[in-house]
Amino acid sequence: MKPAPFAYERPRDVASALAAMAGDGVVKVMAGGQSLGPMLNLRLVAPDTIVDITGLAELKHVEVAGEELVIGACVTHADIEDGRIPDVTRGAMQRVASAIAYRAVRNRGTIGGSLSHADPSADWVSTFAALCATLSLRSAKGARLVAMKDFMLGALESVLQPGEMLEAVRVPVMSPSARWGYVKSCRKTGEFAHAIGAVLIDPEAGRARVVIGAVEAAPIIVDNAEELFGGRITNDFKSRFDARVADTLLSKAGMSDAADRHIHVTILRRAVAEAAA
C-alpha cells in the first residue's frame, strides 16, 4: 500500500506556494498530511505534485487582532489542545481539539488542512461555524474573507478555487456571557463523527447559533436559533429546547431517515444541555 509517485515541492513563502500550485498537472497542497496521507497510500489520490506548506512561517503565525484570534492554517490540533496559542473561546477550542482523532494525528494534523478538506464529519467544520469564524483565503489574485458558514458547499466541496489556499482562521473572542456546547457521536474514541451538535448560546444577548454537523453534506447552520427554543433565547434555554422543531429542520434539510434524525436531534439536545451545565 504505497502511493503512486509524486513530485514534491517545499516552497519558501506563500507567494511561491501559490506559484507552485499553478504548476502543471494535478497539484495538491499538503499540510500535516493526516487526511491526504491515507488516500495517497491507498492510491485513491495520485497527484503529480505535492506542495508541502508546513515550512511556511506565515502559516504558523498566531495573533490576537482586535476582537479576533487569527490562527495560521498550519497550526495543529495539538497546538490548540496544549494551549500553545492564546485562548479566546474560554477553553472551547481546546476541548474540541483534544478529542480529534488521536494524539499522534493531532501532532501533525492542522486546522487549515482539515477545513480545506471540507469533510462534513471533521470537528473544525462545525466548531468554527458555531464560533462565527471567518476564513482568510489567498490566491495569486489576492486575499478574500469567507465566513465559515459560507465556506462549505457540500461533502468535500468548499468555495476554495483552484490556485487558492486557506491562509488563516479568524475566531471572534467569545463573549463572557456566551455558553458553549459541543457533542459528537462516534462509534469509537477518535473515529469519525456520525453526528455533531455545536451551539453557542448567549442568553444575555438573546442570541443562539446552532450547528448540526456530520450530516454527509455541509453542516446545517441556524444563525438565529430562537425557533429551536420556543421563540426566544433566555437563561432557561435548556428546558425550552424543542426537539420537534429540530426534527422538522432536519426533515426540511432532506434527512429522510428517521433514525438519522433521531441521532442528530439527540446529539443537539445534549450539546444544548452541555451549554447549560
Binding site: 491515507p38 491507498l42 462509534r187 469509537k188 474514541t189 477518535g190 473515529e191 469519525f192
Partner: peptide, 13 residues
C-alpha cells in the same frame, strides 16, 4: 476495506 470502516475494539471499548 480499511480499519476506519472495519472497527477493532480499542482501549476505550
Amino acid at each position: 476495506t480499511t480499519l476506519a470502516d472495519y472497527l477493532l475494539p480499542g482501549p476505550t471499548e
